[in-house]
Each structure stands twice: as structure tokens, then as C-alpha cells.
Write a protein that binds this DNA or RNA. Structure first.
Lengths: 219, 219
DNA sequence: GCATATTTTAAACATGCGTTTAATTTAATT
DNA sequence: AATTAAATTAAACGCATGTTTAAAATATGC
């Protein structure tokens, strides 16, 4: 029973964690490609070279930042979906409600975890980060399949193909809302004096995507 | 006449136009920030320095590329909207129908003008191109206001703020469909043996966004 | 046809990037 | 305490970027 020794004497948090935290904040604010390692290491108060020492490359760091969230979010989502399996009938709104708790649970990763996660997701799609999509698909593809099946069950009039397309449009609208959320908030403020925040954007978004998903305007 | 002074012997099109065309194609494919001036000038077969000579800076070039489309699209859209003003009653679908002709008219700028324009729009939003947003807002804000008013008229139960948000989600879903359209087509083919093309994507998209816009699931 | 203005060109500049190196410091093991 | 392993550090590397310069080529106006 060898005891793993505490190394927490000098720096109260490990170098890895400080890098991850700083990287996450900056990635969520500016995007992956627009954030430099020098920004990250300065924000984290660590040496520039330590990123490559601990993570190997910037690409690997990006993956580590995203994985930290995926490993919390996806199992939480899967648990919620399992509960929906038990229910005799469901609708699209119920399916999307099941995102709520997993999203909130991300605050255990970071204080602003929910917001960060959604924005990271947005950049992962809008920037050319193919490796991220491949990783997510291979690591959590079964959860996404589960989600698709439930949405199909909620809307049996639509074919699975229909659901496939609409789910991706939902993703597109969501991603867009996150990435350009701040821009929209500023426009809304200038245009309507509306005192909006991220939560306002999400509230409007949910109504929109639920309506889009259930659209029965033939096809 | 010994030598006719046409400049179309060596370079059949002007340097400015060749830069604009090359920049547009590359911007639409990779995004603004991910495209370098060296890529552009190589593709255009012009000297590197000529971009800064003719346009002043990369930022100004981006603006020029986008402006070339906006100056065609926005007046065309405004003309369509004016026609809608005459009609006694309209619905959301009719408003979106009015986008069709202006979008098609963009082929006069470039063969693949419609696709390019939508993708440029997407990058303009998702990348941090605040100057582009400010330009569009100040140059064509009245047209967008007109559009918003018509959508409000088509859906009087919703506030103008509601319409503002939904309109932008529509934009997000549309842009996403453009950006990842080919990827989705391939996934659909592998997953459902669906023989989809761009038109299929658009057909699904229109149903989705119309449903989202008209969503009455309270708020 | 000559002088003038415009455009094109090759080269360099300054800056920032991700990554690597090699020496030093710190921690762990014996 | 001595030795070994792990982590940190400052510096440099190689490369790519947008921009500027100053000379050469071309077109324009009188």
C-alpha cells in the first residue's frame, strides 16, 4: 500500500490544473485558435514550456479541456435519458428538459462551467477542430444515439431521418447562439434597451428549437 | 493602330477583382482569420503587397469582400419586402420566400455566390469580426428593421424582441447547415442510406426554421 | 515623346506563434 | 546524505503572419 505523496506544499493547485483552468476560461472567451499558449501560461502563472511538458501539444490541451467537461456531462445526460426510457410517453420538450441537470452539474468543474461548456462546444464546431468531433463521436456516440432514439419516440410522426436533420439544426442554432451570444446581447441592448444576459438567450432558444423540432408544416 | 492599349492581353481582369475573387473563395472555405494574404495573392496570381496597396489592410479587404455581396443582396431584399408591404396578410413562410430571389441574384457576383455569401455571413458572426457587424448594421440597418417589422406582422402574437431572437437563431441554423452541410450529407448517407444533396438539406431546414419561428410554446 | 503618376514587384521588417532544448531547481527514493 | 527522477525555467528555434519599403515597370496626360 504505497502512499501517494502530497505535492501540494508549494503551489496550492497543481500546474496541470492551473493550466486547464486558465485555458478553459480563455478558450471559452476567445476560441481555441485565437488563444495563444503565452496567454494561457501567463494567466495561469506557469512557465510557457510547461504546457508542452504536461500535455504534449496545444491540440492535446484543447482535447483535455473539452474532455474534462464531456466526462461529467455525458454520463449525467445518459442517466437522465435512462429515466426517460421508463416513462410511458414523452415529448420533445421533456427530452430537452433532461439537458438541464447535466448542464447545471458542470458547475462542479468550474464556477461558470455551464456557460464555458456550451461555448467550447460552439467553437469546437465552428472552428475546424475535426479531432474534437471525432473524439466526441467515438467516446460518447452511444449517448447521442440514445438521444436520437428518444427524440424519435417523442415525435413518431417524423422519420428518423427527419429527426437526424432537425437535431443538427438544433445544434447549429444552439452553437450559434452561444458563440455570437454576446454580440446579440449587445445588439438587443442597442435596439430594444433589453437588458439581456446569457440566460435570456437560452430561454428564447429553447422555445425556438422545440418549435422547430416539432414542426408539422409537412415536409 | 499598332498596339491597342487594352490591358486585357496580359491580365484579363483587374488586380482588385482578382484579389476580391480569390479572397472570397478562400474566406468562404476557411474563414477570415484562417486565410492568409499569401494564400490569397497566390491564388489570385498577384503580388503580396498589392493587397495592402489596393485595400490598405486585411481587415479592409474582408470588408470589401462582404460589401460586394451586401450591396447586391440588401437592395434586392428591400425590394421584395416592399412588395410584401402591399399584401393584406402575410405569414412567416411568405417572408422567408422573399429571401429566395435576392439569394439567387448573388450568382451575378460569383458563380457560387449564394453559398459563399451564407458562409461569409456565418464566419462574420462566429469569428470576432465586430467591424463587419458594425458596418452591416450601419449600412443596412433599415432593411433589417423592415424585415423584423414584417416578421412581427406575420406573427403579431410575438413581441418584436421575440422575433429579434428567433430571426438570429434562424440565421444560426442556416449558417450551420451551410458550413457543415456536406458533412451532414455524408453522415446521413452512412447512417440511413439517404441519397441527400444540398437541396435536401435546405428543404429540411426551411421546415425547421418555419416551425421555430412560429413556435407558440409560450415563453 | 517626354514627364508624371500609377501600379507592380522582390525583399525585408517586426511580431507572434507552437515547440524544443538544455540547464537548473525541486521532489522522491534508497 | 547521496542518488535518481520529476518538474520548472529561460532562452532560442523555425516558421508564418500582416505590413512596409524602395526600386522597377507600366500606364497616363500634356
Amino acid at each position: 500500500m504505497s502512499e501517494t505523496v502530497t505535492r501540494t506544499r508549494k503551489s496550492k493547485t497543481s500546474t496541470q490544473k492551473r493550466i486547464l483552468d486558465a485555458a478553459e476560461t480563455l478558450f471559452a472567451r476567445e476560441g481555441f485558435e485565437q488563444t495563444s499558449l503565452r496567454q494561457i501560461t501567463q494567466e495561469a502563472n506557469v512557465n510557457l514550456a510547461s504546457v508542452n511538458y504536461h500535455f504534449g501539444s496545444k491540440k492535446a490541451l484543447i482535447q483535455a479541456v473539452v474532455a474534462r467537461y464531456m466526462n461529467v456531462f455525458m454520463p449525467a445526460l445518459e442517466a437522465e435519458l435512462k429515466q426517460l426510457d421508463e416513462r410511458p410517453s414523452i415529448d420533445s420538450l421533456a427530452v430537452f428538459e433532461s439537458f438541464k441537470a447535466p448542464l447545471v452539474s458542470l458547475t462542479q468543474v468550474h464556477k461558470r462551467g455551464t456557460e464555458h461548456f456550451l461555448r467550447l462546444l460552439g467553437f469546437a464546431y465552428s472552428e475546424t477542430q475535426g479531432h474534437l468531433r471525432r473524439y466526441t463521436q467515438s467516446a460518447f456516440g452511444d449517448v447521442l444515439q440514445h438521444l436520437l432514439a428518444l427524440l424519435h419516440r417523442a415525435n413518431p410522426k417524423l422519420t428518423e431521418q427527419d429527426m437526424f436533420w432537425r437535431l443538427h439544426f438544433v445544434l447549429g442554432a444552439t452553437v450559434f447562439a452561444q458563440v455570437s451570444g454576446q454580440a446579440l446581447i449587445e445588439i438587443a441592448q442597442a435596439e430594444f434597451d433589453e437588458d439581456a444576459d446569457i440566460q435570456t438567450v437560452i430561454d428564447h432558444l429553447i422555445v425556438f428549437i422545440a418549435g422547430g423540432l416539432d414542426s408539422q408544416l409537412d415536409g
